[in-house]
């Protein structure tokens, strides 16, 4: 997909022991990588050139990654993937809330990082009008918080769902009352961690139905369409986060 002009990546990390081998690895994967050892260095590089994507370490001396991330997404509209040592969900949420497109926890599998870079680039090229990533989905009294990946039922009870179920549900919620065939669903849901979703779509749908349908054998929200596909039979509203 990057045959002619290589994708330009700005890698910002204060640790040369990680930055150098990672830059070399990404170069081998066909990316044009520029390195910066601090937020200040990154800012001066950004004046001269515009990368396609920024890989940004959160914990850095001086200006930290979150601050630079906010600047990049607000003023430049650049896609950002955060690199961090912390694996707490709250850290992930903060990162995504200030506009990062994705989040990778150290130590990461380099192949997975590449997959995510490609996925983020695909999304940023496709979505010219950025949907507000943080807005809640609301349907039939249910709510889905896309940042916390939290599904709550009409009584406000949290219904834990797996990552795969979250992606499937989100895909359905993004296209309410539209028939989505299995290939389309798989395409929308896959992407980041392919191995998480090599089970059939049907299997995920039936799991999701067990959690949100009153009677999973005669589903009303996620309906099966004859001829191979699924349809979310509900109206979906987006609610700005914070007023849940």
């Amino acid at each position: 997909m990057n045959d002619e002009t290589p994708t330009r990546i700005l890698l910002v990390d204060d640790e040369p022991t990680l930055r150098e081998p990672l830059a070399a690895y990404l170069a081998r994967q066909g990316f044009a990588v520029t390195e910066a050892e601090s937020a200040a260095a990154a800012r001066s590089i950004l004046i001269e050139q515009a990368p396609d994507l920024v890989l940004l370490d959160i914990m850095m001396p001086g200006e930290d990654g979150l601050s630079l991330c906010r600047h990049l997404t607000e003023t430049r509209g650049l896609p950002v993937i955060l690199l961090t040592a912390k694996s707490e969900p709250t850290d992930r949420i903060i990162g995504l809330e200030i506009g990062a497109d994705d989040y990778v926890v150290k130590p990461f599998e380099p192949r997975e990082l590449v997959a995510r870079i490609r996925s983020v680039l695909r999304r940023s090229q496709r979505a010219a009008t950025p949907i507000e990533e943080t807005a809640f989905y609301s349907f039939e009294g249910w709510q889905l918080d896309p940042l916390k990946r939290k599904l709550t039922d009409p009584d406000g009870v949290v219904i834990p769902i797996s990552t795969a179920e979250f992606r499937l549900l989100r895909a359905l919620l993004d296209h309410p009352r539209q028939v989505l065939d299995r290939d389309r669903l798989l395409d929308m849901v896959q992407g980041r961690e392919a191995h998480m979703f090599d089970r059939a779509v049907d299997n995920q749908v039936s799991r999701l139905r067990r959690k949100i349908e009153a009677d999973s054998r005669s589903p009303e929200i996620i309906q099966t369409v004859r001829g191979g596909g699924y349809c979310l039979a509900a109206d979906v509203r987006r609610i700005a986060s914070g007023q849940s």
Binding site: L18, P21, L22, A85, K106, P107, F108, E109
Partner: peptide, 15 residues
Amino acid sequence: HDLKTPLAALRVRIE
């Protein structure tokens, strides 16, 4: 942070 960064570096290098 201090342990995971070198681990990440190692993980990249073994590729």
